[in-house]
Nucleic acid binder design. Structure first.
Length: 118
RNA sequence: GGAGUUGGCUGGACAGCCGCCGCCCCGCGCGGAGGAAAGUCCGGGCUCCGCAGGACAAGGUGCCAGGUAAUGCCUGGGGGGCGCGAGCCCACGGAAAGUGCCACAGAAAACAUACCGCCCAAGUCCCCAGUGGACCGGUAAGGGUGAAAAGGUGCGGUAAGAGCGCACCGCGUUGCCGGUAACGGUAACGGCACGGUAAACCCCACCUGGAGCAAGACCAAAUAGGGGAGUAACAACGUGUGGUCCGCACGACUCCCGGGUAGGUCGCUACAGGCGUAUGGUGACAUACGUCGCAGAUGAAUGGCUGUCCCAGACAGAACCCGGCUUAUAGGCCAACUCCUUUC
């Protein structure tokens, strides 16, 4: 598997996949994101996004947040093997800089990596 | 040079690394957000429903002509208002079809009225017999109130006044002339009758069937019993995606077919298309020829990081597609025109 690619199979594409994660998952939260993760049987991680209009009224800001999450996930996926992850945006997310969001996400990925070992 | 008006264009650039979506000739190939993609306020295309019929209701539009697939849009013209001007603004049909309303103030607010006033000419009475007083009256010029006081100004006229008479203006009617028309001009007559309000009801003219790409078509796990075609009937009743009624279709019988939710595929981007030239037209626009190929995602792509430069990057993200309108928008550029100033 390519270390930094992010194709369709690395995403959650069905409502059922999201329901599966919401039903039973480990949670990691801070003021920017809530991250849900559940172990899967595929041997690689998958990402889903939930950024509603509550996060930001502007579609431009919501798109920016989603791109940053994807970009961060793309670089971090080596350390997150075999998890389905759903990242949920929070109202504060839209108001802060890209650097702050990347920093927040790095901490979440690190926490998931420790769950993977246990 | 300054101030301004109108119309149009643009919406950081370059390099490297790492990615995402689509297409094909599968290569380190090509393409990949906007002028508003927005608000969803109008108008169409497209799709399904009773194939779009009649009546009522409801809603919309509202000077005239043209453009257009169509419009509530655009262009040209008319009328009114604003500006020295270039230009800008107007919900701009009807108030002698009817109804309603017109607060406060004011005497009176629509069959006008008479508070302060003005006048005693005619009639009656009184006395000190006058340029007198009172009654009965006349009047609406002046004052005052109001957004608005029943045409305005001037002259005549009168007891005082009054379209009572005249001139001009306004208004109305009729005729003539110009204009496709809105409308404009003009003449005669009327003697003012017609206060405002129709984004109050209303009247008149014109327009609108309903739902929407989660439309709709196809392939199809699960689950539940249904769907199509033909024939007969169309009285009642029931059912049906139109606001109501009429009309219309279905119900019974016969024959045939497995069904269609999750999911998938299509619809899905090539057209009222962009650009250029020519011709016609004041113009919106039309016609002809040439040329270009310009996102198509579906948990939803069009990005991240680093470096350099500058004027330090506004508003903002396609979701079936077009035409408009409205609203948001840092900065920069271009053209035409107007006014002021300076120089020659």
């Amino acid at each position: 598997m390519m270390s930094a690619s992010f194709g369709r199979r690395a995403r959650l594409t069905h409502k059922a996949d999201y329901q599966h994660v919401f039903a039973q998952s480990n949670r990691s939260g801070d003021r920017y994101f809530t991250v849900l993760a559940r172990r899967n049987e595929l041997g690689y991680p998958r990402l889903g996004l939930a950024v509603s209009r509550k996060v930001a009224k502007s579609a431009v800001i919501r798109n920016r947040v989603k791109r940053i999450v994807r970009e961060s996930f793309r670089h971090a996926q080596e350390q997150l093997n075999s998890f389905d992850v759903v990242v949920i945006g929070r109202p504060q997310t839209g108001t802060c800089s890209n650097e702050a969001l990347f920093a927040s996400l790095r901490q979440h990925w690190a926490r998931l990596a420790t769950w993977a070992k246990s």
